[in-house]
């Protein structure tokens, strides 16, 4: 009886009374709005100001951008950053997808524990973990900077790939998989024709969540790499460390921001129409 009456009450509640004690529910977002204005929007404009002004005179100039586009070697570093981010993302995807499938299968009853094992590293500071990786790599006698950086990045960002994949794979309607097998699809065909297309939203989320931070990383390359793995993030970091380099550093950051935004928009466009869930962004 009780159960019935509460559900009935919930369903008759009209949409427009989304107020709790006279406060509109959207008002709950105000604290975050304030926070993001102070720490995201305003800094963006400060960055924009620095990017378009001359450090010495304070006058408006486009020279900071010209600085980037007139230096092929820096553009090459940028390309390298995208390449290693792409490599990291692909490796994470290849490792995480089978794992997500295995974790979601009912055969593994201890899935919570196993998920915890992979999420647990997120509880430890990433810089600390990176130093730990350095020690492990040293013990394993892996000295190639590229290999070291890639391993470090994959290890560091793996949970960000696993979580969205796991949530989409384990949330998948099991009867769809059975329907596919029922209609004559072998397990491999089912993977290609049903599982992967249906987990596309999770794949896109995971890809973005790994790709975006890796393309601008500098902490991991600082700890694990050498001069050959110098990334765009390191260059930006370098400019900001010099007192006179803020203008050029801002311009570089701005260019990276535009490129990442373009990547995200492209990814969203790819998923559009395929599903309502879409990517995280």
């Amino acid at each position: 009886m009780n159960k019935n009456s509460t559900t009935a009450a919930a369903s008759v509640t009209p949409r427009k009374t989304r107020k709790i004690r006279g406060v509109k529910r959207s008002a709950f977002a105000l604290p975050y709005l304030a926070l993001s204005i102070v720490f995201v929007i305003v800094p963006l404009f400060i960055m924009l100001y620095y990017a378009f002004t001359d450090g010495a005179t304070g006058s408006f100039t486009g020279a900071n951008f010209v600085h980037f586009f007139s230096r092929p070697n820096i553009m090459a570093v940028m390309g390298k950053s995208f390449l290693i981010a792409l490599l990291t993302t692909v490796l994470c995807l290849i490792l995480a997808y089978p794992l997500a499938l295995a974790l979601s299968s009912s055969a593994l009853n201890k899935k919570f524990i196993i998920v915890m094992l992979f999420v647990l590293p997120m509880w430890i500071n990433s810089l600390l973990r990176t130093y730990a990786v350095k020690i492990v790599l040293f013990m394993l006698n892996i000295s190639n900077a590229w290999v070291a950086v890639t391993i470090g990045m994959v290890y560091d960002f793996f949970p960000f790939m696993l979580l969205p994949l796991y949530s989409v794979v384990s949330g998948m309607d099991k009867s769809l998989i059975e329907a596919s097998q029922d209609l004559g699809a072998s397990p491999l065909k089912t993977l290609i024709k049903v599982r992967i297309p249906l987990s596309l939203p999770g794949i896109i989320s995971g890809v973005l969540m790994v790709f975006m931070p890796t393309v601008s990383t500098f902490a991991i390359t600082d700890v694990l790499g050498d001069t050959s793995t110098y990334m765009f993030g390191n260059i930006i970091n370098q400019w900001f460390r010099n007192s006179g380099g803020w203008n050029i550093g801002s311009a570089y950051s701005f260019i990276l921001l535009i490129l990442i935004a373009a990547t995200v928009l492209l990814a969203n466009k790819l998923t559009k129409g395929k599903t309502e869930i879409g990517g995280v962004l």
């Binding site: 059975e178 097998q181 029922d182 004559g184 699809a185 072998s186 049903v194 249906l198």
Partner: peptide, 16 residues
Amino acid sequence: PHLRPINTVFQKYALF
């Protein structure tokens, strides 16, 4: 199941 000449109509349709 994929080798059986049997097909199923599922309770919640299970359309792709």
